[in-house]
Amino acid sequence: MSTPLTPTAPTATATALALGDDALVLSHRLGEWAGHAPVLEEEVALANIALDLLGQARVLLSLAGDEDELAYLREERAFRNLQLVEQPNGDFARTIARQLYFSTYQNLLYGQLASGDGTFAPLAAKAVKEVAYHQDHAEQWTLRLGDGTAESHERMQRGLDALWRFTGEMFQPVGGLDGADGTGGVVWPALRESWTASVSAVIEKATLTVPTGPQEGAWAAGAGRQGLHTESFGRMLAEMQHLHRSHPGASW
């Protein structure tokens, strides 16, 4: 049974889906690295991050409904994740650039949520410990690749540049996190400022250049949150959902 998702869905559900889909989709992308990582330690690290994210996704999606129905039976247009997290892995530098952008965002966002007493505070309090580790991992690799060899420097810069246009979407307010329920809400402009400062400092320390292009693509910023995705996402879902959809009603 497909779960319809419309803008009229209760706010907490929509919020859980937005955050849950981010974690679910990025976890899936990282899972694609299994058996392909450049060094054994990274097999462990990337799988570990993927597992943390999958754990977050399961809690969040369960707040919104049945985790498997939501993951496996929604179509592309019903997913609410950021376009950033659905971007293909590319080379290791591009994966690290995606991790740097997203984990910094997630750490700041969950940090703010954890300090409030809203619906998502308990989840954020647990997840923030995980995402702090993810951010550290991404930062360490940004430094190594940026300040490593000429080739790694160039690849890291390319990864940062290519994904920059997907970063603006992170600062479009997610409904339900603005403190309208009387709890401490997320202040989006401040989040953007902290993110920019944090990411810029790492990029500069890594002897790289902070990208200067627009932070939105041709789709308006916020597109992913409204179910407008990039082309590779449909193929990713086809692979992810195929088996589950082939056995309607089965349990695993």
């Binding site: 399961r58 692979e239 992810m240 695993w252």
Partner: peptide, 18 residues
């Protein structure tokens, strides 16, 4: 991993490969 039929099974498989 990318085709595991439920999120629980996917998590178990990822943990195993790790």
């Amino acid at each position: 991993i990318t085709r595991a039929p439920s999120l629980r099974r996917k998590a178990i498989l990822m943990a195993k490969v790790q």
